[in-house]
Amino acid sequence: MTTDTARELSLLTMQSLPRELYVRQQTMPAGHFFPLHQHDWHQLLYAVSGVLVVDLIGERYFIPPEQAIWLPRGCQHSVFTEYGADLKSLYLDPDYKGLTSEKAAVLQVSPLFRELILTAAEFEVEYPVQGYENDLVQLLLQTLSRLPRNDRYLPWPVSEDLIDLCNRLYKQSDSRETSEQLAAGLAASLRTLDRRFRRETGMSLKQWRLQLRLMQAIELLNTGQSITAIALELGYSSPSPFIYMFREQFGVSPAQYRKQRVSPGLQQRG
């Protein structure tokens, strides 16, 4: 099987994986969306560039290039990218036991693991089961099991009206509506809205909006926009309060985050 033919394999027609690890590459254009689905095998989603927005029931994850998300077999999920992404989907045999988590998990991608993914992505689907290719795949799988986890994600409500509210706030990132105004739009008191929101997400609406801005800041910092433009897009009157908020939460300024996002020497690959 040639590489070109291998890359045309359809996940819809596959009854089982051709190898213990199968890497599928895809360039996702801006606004691309994979609707809710699941697989009969484990999956690791990784974007070499761009940010993935991965929705599970009750959870939303923003996955920048320094992270990947582990989706165990049967985990229902949808995937979206606002600004485009260079996607590497790693499909793993359901018998793989390196990660025992039965729930989705965000993993910090090391420079070594990134290089292993990029190399394995160039293998033919039916690569030799002995020799260099298989040895590299085994190293990749062993490295995967040792990656540290990151628990930062955005809880998502399950009630239809609250889902619509959160989707609107996500799309209108510069919205300056107060919590009282949002509650009035739902014909509810602020106390009622906050109680419902806490019950479904574990945090207040105000806390949730701050977390949303943080996640969207990460998303925007992976584009070429200036810090000033990002601050204004997120609804700040100037860059200063945005920089302060970001530093308070992440320990570095937005510019420092952008600079250290990808280790030197890994930003370009032929």
Results as ranks from 00 to 15, higher is better:
M1E: 11
M1K: 01
D4R: 12
E8S: 10
S10E: 13
Q15D: 11
S16N: 08
L17P: 05
V23W: 04
G31C: 04
F33C: 02
L45H: 06
S49V: 02
S49Y: 00
G50F: 13
V51S: 02
L52C: 01
V53S: 02
E59N: 06
E66C: 15
C75R: 08
Q76K: 10
Y83Q: 14
D93C: 02
S101Q: 15
S101H: 14
E102H: 13
A104E: 08
A105N: 06
V106I: 14
L112K: 14
A120M: 06
A121C: 06
E122V: 10
Q130N: 02
Q130H: 02
S145L: 10
R146M: 15
R146A: 15
Y153Q: 04
W156G: 03
C166V: 07
C166D: 01
C166F: 00
L182I: 10
A184M: 12
E200K: 02
T201M: 04
K206A: 15
Q211T: 03
R213Y: 00
A217H: 05
I218G: 00
L221D: 04
G224T: 11
L234Y: 08
S237G: 03
Q249K: 15
F250R: 01
V252G: 03
V252T: 10
S253P: 01
S253A: 11
Q256G: 01
Q256L: 08
Y257T: 01
V262D: 03
S263K: 13
Q267W: 05
R269F: 14
